[in-house]
Design a binder for these strands. Structure first.
Length: 273
DNA sequence: AAAAGGACCTGGTGGC
DNA sequence: TGCCACCAGGTCCTTT
């Protein structure tokens, strides 16, 4: 589900409610996420204060008194700030109940997400150590992509979705970025020149920034921490538009699979070569 | 070493 | 209405 803008939306939504609040109780109803949620969370977290909420790629990092909670929403995860009395829904797996009687509730039907605990510096955690560049915190993203691309032989869409190259770009924003940059998703990265990568870097930053401002993309079930949908789906220019005329030139939008993921492109605006 | 493919899950949808 | 196949916003792990 959530790509960088959605995770950022959730981060901002929960930060005001949990930062500087003390965890009172942790309820683990279903620990079988992508990796098992540590049982010890229920005993070590109560009494600890959440100091900050930050984001690295699509991971949320809750800095606590004695370590970090590391949360990923996977494909279908949600984090809601609710009153703990609110009746449970199916797949409400974990509750973090705070002293102010607010509850951070983790919900995840497909259980592809994770909730982990680390006392090491987060940048050394195996899941975070190899993550690539943050697209919104660096100006030279185009040069970065170009330099790595020269050693590789893969389709550009797969390349920009690789979190070891650049973080946060999932299937929707990969499709949208390549359309706005006029680059065919199947083009080999080694054939893309610096100017093209610089343009791609610019549109990636623009699209992620606007998507955050719109509260993310809700195709089906993404919501922010208050349970509200995002609005960026109204801005999608290419994703999900197979068979429709391209908004720029009128050619029919094509649909193919790239690495098993749905991919959309305009054959005129995004020439193969 | 790099790239491709499989795996992990549930819920919704469309076809018969 | 029921059953089934297929699809979905992610990414790690295994195989080639």
């Amino acid at each position: 589900m959530p790509e960088l803008p959605e995770v950022e939306t959730v981060k901002r939504g929960i930060a005001t409610h949990v930062e500087n609040k003390i965890i009172q109780q942790v309820i683990l109803r279903e620990r079988r996420l992508r990796w098992e949620v540590p049982e010890t969370l229920a005993t070590i977290l109560p009494g600890q204060r959440v100091e900050t909420v930050t984001r690295r790629g699509k991971y949320l990092l809750l800095k606590c008194t004695l370590g970090h909670l590391l949360i990923h929403l996977g494909m279908s995860g949600r984090l809601l700030v609710v009153n703990p009395e609110i009746p449970l829904q199916k797949h409400d797996h974990v509750d973090f109940i705070f002293e102010n009687n607010q509850c951070l509730r983790y919900h995840d039907p497909r259980r592809f997400g994770c909730i982990l605990w680390t006392t090491e510096p987060t940048e050394q955690h195996p899941l975070l150590a190899n993550l690539g560049m943050e697209p919104l915190e660096n100006r030279a993203i185009g040069e970065h992509l170009f330099n790595i691309a020269r050693k590789k032989d893969i389709a550009v869409k797969k390349f920009i979705m690789n979190n070891q190259v650049v973080v946060g770009i999932g299937n929707i924003y990969a499709n949208e970025s390549l359309f706005l940059a006029g680059i065919h998703p199947l083009r080999a990265v080694s054939s893309i020149n610096l100017a093209e990568f610089q343009q791609l870097g610019i549109v990636i930053q623009q699209i992620l920034t606007i998507a955050i401002a719109k509260g993310g993309t809700t195709l089906k079930d993404f919501t922010n921490s208050a349970g509200q949908a995002g609005y960026f789906q109204q801005e999608l220019k290419i994703y999900g538009r197979a068979g429709e005329p391209c908004g720029q030139c009128g050619a029919i939008v094509q649909h193919i699979k790239i690495v098993q993921r749905p991919s959309y492109f305009c054959p005129h605006c995004q020439p193969v070569e």
